[in-house]
Computed example of a mutant assay.
Amino acid sequence: MLEGTWRVFVSSVGALFTVSGVLGGAWQFQGRRAFKEEILETTRVARDVISSGLVGVGTSYLHDLNWRDLLGKVKHLDLLLAYGDTWRRSNIHELRKLGRKKGRKICIFLPDVADAQTVETLSWRFGMTQDELIGKIEEARQDYELIRVSKGATVRIYYYPGDRYFSLYRLDQRAVLTLYSHGRDRRPVPTLIFDVGGSLYKFVEEELEDILRRSRAV
């Protein structure tokens, strides 16, 4: 009787170890495969980031970059704005310094105040009257015209007809793109920072070329 009981016990323990070994092997295999897939997915993401040229992501374009340093060193500045009150006022001193530097180039694209559809679309988007929008655009134009001085930077201002899907700041080989919110209230918006050589910078180059062709000089 004792011998039979012992035989059953040994058989049960052996089966337990066998099942444990199978489960352990399966777990090890699944774990390794999951780890491998995770590494591959991370590699793909890293490759996508590198190919895009992305160097930073934020939600506060006013503070995510050292604008004073960037504007102090820039040789060619391109701006695509609806009117950009806050950014312009925050950096007006640096912009005026830049305007006094011979050999520098500054190009600003503002909404075309003479294009009825542009004014109607943007005034609705920003929750203001058409007269208020035109006033803000004209105020921006006047501020940018004031940074133009004799023997200083080349300052060109253009009116561009059409909607705005983002604001764009291109400073030599670096670009900053800020998206717009669908809401009427002020809220943090995604900001992408990327350098020349990637797909995002190429997109910016092509956009600016197309915008320039469709714009008129002020």
Rank of each mutant, 00 (worst) to 15 (best):
L16P: 09
L80I: 08
D195Y: 00
T118A: 01
E138Y: 01
W27N: 12
E132V: 07
G24Y: 00
R104W: 04
G24Q: 02
K101E: 15
R88F: 00
G31K: 08
A217V: 11
Q117S: 06
A15F: 11
P190G: 08
E37F: 11
A140Y: 05
R186Y: 14
M128Q: 10
D163Y: 03
A217C: 07
V45D: 11
Y169I: 15
L171D: 11
E145K: 12
L192D: 03
R213G: 02
V149Q: 14
I108L: 10
H182Y: 12
L71R: 03
E139H: 11
Y201M: 05
D131W: 10
L110E: 09
L98C: 07
K101I: 14
S181A: 13
D172V: 00
A153R: 01
A82V: 14
R141F: 09
L177V: 12
I134W: 07
D115E: 04
F126G: 14
R170I: 05
Y158M: 04
G127N: 12
A153F: 09
F35W: 10
V8D: 08
G53P: 08
R141T: 09
L80H: 06
G198D: 07
G53R: 02
A217F: 12
T43H: 02
F126C: 14
T154G: 12
W124T: 09
D210N: 06
R88M: 01
T191A: 05
I108M: 08
D78P: 09
R89N: 02
K202F: 08
I39V: 15
V55T: 05
S20Q: 08
D112K: 00
K105Q: 14
F166M: 03
G4I: 09
D131G: 05
R47S: 15
R89V: 03
E205Q: 02
T86Y: 15
V155F: 03
L200I: 04
I193G: 01
Y61L: 02
C107I: 08
R47K: 13
S12W: 14
P111L: 02
Y201Q: 05
E37I: 13
V74Q: 04
V22Y: 13
L212I: 05
D115L: 02
T42K: 04
A34C: 07
K151E: 01
L16Q: 05
L40T: 11
T18E: 14
F17N: 07
K105P: 11
G197S: 06
L168C: 10
R96P: 00
R32K: 13
V19W: 06
V204G: 03
R125Q: 09
D112M: 01
A26K: 06
E3P: 06
T129E: 12
G25C: 10
E132C: 01
K101W: 15
C107N: 08
Y159Q: 02
L200A: 08
Y159N: 02
E145L: 13
V45H: 07
G21C: 05
